[in-house]
Amino acid sequence: MPKFTLVAGARPNFMKIAPIIHALQKAKKTNPSLQYRLVHTGQHYDKKMSGDFFDQLNIPKPDANLGGGGGTQAEQTASIMVAFEKELMENPCDLVLVVGDVTSTLACSITAKKLNIDVAHVEGGIRSGDLTMPEEINRMVTDSITDHFFTTSEIANNNLRKLGFREEQVHFVGNTMIDTLKAQMPRFRPPEGDVFDGLKKKEYFVMTMHRPANVDQEQQLKAMLDAILEGTQGLPIVFPVHPRTAKILSNLGLDASNLHLCEPLGYLEFNYLVRNAKAVITDSGGITEEASVMNVPCITLRDNTERAETIHLGTNELVGTDPSKLKPYLDKVMAGEWKEYQGIPMWDGKTAERIVEILLSKY
């Protein structure tokens, strides 16, 4: 009678875990003894993650919310570990499944292993090589104590082999983010609001920026936005922006009628915009995956990436954080000369089914 505990802490985690829940629900019909719990650590909370977010992804509300949000990285990690230890002692399980690279992933994997519970890491093995990123530390520590790795690429597999993990621990299954994308694509819908009225297909850009290297320094942000505004030649730029970044932007005194700021969007609305955009400009990892599969040009404002397959086989280009490097890439987008999506192995929408099949063969 296998018992699994699934952990999610931030909004992207739920996109990765939703298809696994759907696959478990399906498996339970033929294996009624299968039990699982969904635990939300509470690391991130916003209104888009309350009712409508779970409805959009068609996943049940979590069985527990640990309320671990707020505070410094150390305070958040400690808060989640204390609450998750109590959760596991009250609801014992055979395996804890964590996804991605957020603080919750680190905290819950350590807590599980100290209670002698197996850990499975979905998206294990990916590396940026950048230890200034908290996510990279989370990945490294989580992988060091993981029992089963569910990987997205051969690059991740090789990273784990170099670290000495056994072949039977490494399961190349694909990308559950793409499971969600493919399942939800027919339901994508245009966002409502004046900001979006009049946008024409393939005649606007979508931009996201949240990394401190890009948004915390006012002059760096201004220089980057100036380069983007110049290179996009007056086409609309839709920028869903977090309140912290909005405050910094307000200090810059930008005068650009084609830069449309809006609040963060729901999953279905945001990906509708991406699918129909001329290109995406971002410093996110996950968006590079989604844009690639939707064959939308993607410009990444980072000096490194943990998702190199989106560059080799996808539509992503790593431009860096120097605004002066941006122009040739935007010129290529404007000229319609961007590379096409080549197809990334196993990113076929069936990753979660493979994960659950492997789990049930092991427990």
Rank of each mutant, 00 (worst) to 15 (best):
A279N: 07
K200T: 10
K201C: 10
D348Q: 06
A223T: 06
E135W: 10
G70A: 09
E87Q: 15
D63G: 14
I287L: 15
Q76S: 05
V356D: 04
Q233L: 09
G69D: 15
L163T: 06
N65R: 02
E123Y: 05
A18N: 13
M185W: 06
L199V: 03
K362I: 14
R189F: 00
T321D: 07
G193D: 10
N13G: 05
L261V: 00
P12S: 07
E192Y: 09
G174A: 06
Q56L: 12
T77A: 09
L57K: 02
I358W: 03
N157C: 13
M224P: 04
S104I: 11
I20W: 06
G253Y: 11
P240M: 13
G320F: 09
V274M: 14
G286M: 14
S33Y: 10
L318H: 12
P92K: 11
M209G: 15
L235G: 00
L38K: 13
S79L: 15
E123K: 08
L66W: 05
H210W: 11
V96E: 00
K332M: 15
H148S: 03
L106D: 06
V98L: 06
L199A: 00
E357S: 14
I117W: 06
E309T: 14
R166L: 10
G68F: 01
N175F: 08
S128E: 02
L106S: 03
T132H: 12
Q342V: 05
T41G: 06
L106A: 09
E340Q: 12
S292E: 09
Y204D: 02
N175P: 09
K3E: 09
L115T: 01
L259K: 07
M346P: 02
G285Y: 02
A107M: 08
S324C: 10
V280Y: 05
G234F: 01
S128G: 11
Q217W: 02
Q233P: 01
R354P: 05
R244N: 07
L301A: 02
V241G: 01
I248W: 00
E192D: 13
E85S: 10
F205T: 03
D130P: 11
N159P: 10
K3A: 09
E340W: 00
D147N: 15
L318E: 14
K3W: 06
A83L: 03
G314M: 08
G125W: 03
Q73D: 03
L181V: 01
K247F: 08
Q220D: 14
V293N: 10
E123I: 04
P264L: 15
P236T: 02
A256M: 05
P264R: 12
L225F: 08
W338E: 14
T111Y: 09
I155N: 03
R166E: 13
M294C: 11
T315L: 03
G42L: 08
M1S: 11
V119R: 04
M133G: 11
G253M: 12
F150A: 01
Y267E: 04
Q184V: 03
P191M: 11
P236Q: 01
M346Q: 13
T72F: 14
E289A: 12
L261R: 08
